[in-house]
C-alpha cells in the first residue's frame, strides 16, 4: 500500500523532529550535572584517588563486618587445626608441638597464605578460642608471592628447650609427689 505524498512528507518531518527532540532532550537531561556544581544530589565523586590521605576512605570508615586480612593472636591460639580443615582453598598451614604445659599445644607454624585466601570468613567462624579474626587492613602487596605469606607461628622448639622443659616438668611432678 502506497502512502500519499503528503503523508510520507509528514512522516519524514516527524522523524526529523523526533530525532532532534530526543537527542537534544537527552542533552538537557544531563545538563544539570554540568551546571549544578556542588548540588549534593547530582554531584558525586565516583572515583576516588586511592593512595590519597585526604579524600580516600581509611580503614576506620569500613563497616564493622569487613573481611580484611586475617590476623591470629598466637597467645590465644590452641592449635586445634579447625581452621585448617575448613579452609576451602587450603591457605592455612599449622604445625604443632608439645608445650611445656601438657594440656596445651605449642603452635610452631601458623602460616596464612594471603595470595590464596578468598576471604570467605569460615576460619574465623569456626575458631573456638576467638584467636583468629579479620582485621580491617586491606593493603597487602609484595613483589613475590612469598611476601604475601604471613607467619604467626612461634617457631620450632629447639631440642635444648625441650630438654629444659622436660627437666622442669619432672621437677614439678616430683615436687607435686613430694607434697
Amino acid at each position: 500500500m502506497r502512502q500519499s505524498v503528503f503523508q510520507s512528507f509528514h512522516d519524514y518531518c516527524r522523524t526529523i523532529f523526533k530525532g532532534c527532540n530526543s537527542v537534544l532532550g537527552s542533552f538537557f537531561s544531563a545538563l544539570p550535572y554540568l551546571l549544578k556544581e556542588g548540588a549534593s544530589e547530582l554531584k558525586k565523586e565516583v572515583t576516588e584517588q586511592y593512595p590519597d590521605p585526604v579524600s580516600s576512605r581509611t580503614a576506620a570508615d569500613l563497616p564493622p563486618r569487613t573481611k580484611g586480612l586475617i590476623y591470629n593472636e598466637i597467645d590465644k591460639c590452641t592449635g586445634c587445626k579447625e581452621c585448617e580443615k575448613i579452609c576451602p582453598v587450603n591457605c592455612i598451614k599449622i604445625e604443632t608441638d608439645s608445650d611445656f604445659d601438657p594440656a596445651k599445644l605449642w603452635v610452631s607454624v601458623f602460616d596464612v597464605d594471603h595470595s590464596k585466601c578468598i576471604f570467605c570468613g569460615l576460619c574465623v567462624e569456626v575458631c573456638q578460642p576467638d584467636s583468629l579474626f579479620h582485621t580491617k587492613k586491606f593493603e597487602f602487596t609484595g613483589f613475590k608471592t612469598q611476601d604475601l605469606l604471613e607467619r604467626f607461628g612461634r617457631g620450632p622448639v629447639s631440642p635444648e628447650q625441650k630438654e629444659k622443659w622436660l627437666a622442669l616438668r619432672k621437677l614439678r611432678e616430683e615436687e607435686a609427689l613430694g607434697l
Binding site: P63, T66, I118
Partner: peptide, 24 residues
C-alpha cells in the same frame, strides 16, 4: 552488601539452614 556481609562481591553469607549472621 559490604555493610551486611563484609564483602562486596563474593558474599559468603548464606549457610545451610539460614544465614551466617543476623542483619545489622
Amino acid at each position: 552488601f559490604e555493610l551486611l556481609t563484609g564483602s562486596r562481591f563474593s558474599l559468603g553469607f548464606l549457610c545451610y539452614g539460614g544465614v551466617r549472621k543476623d542483619i545489622t
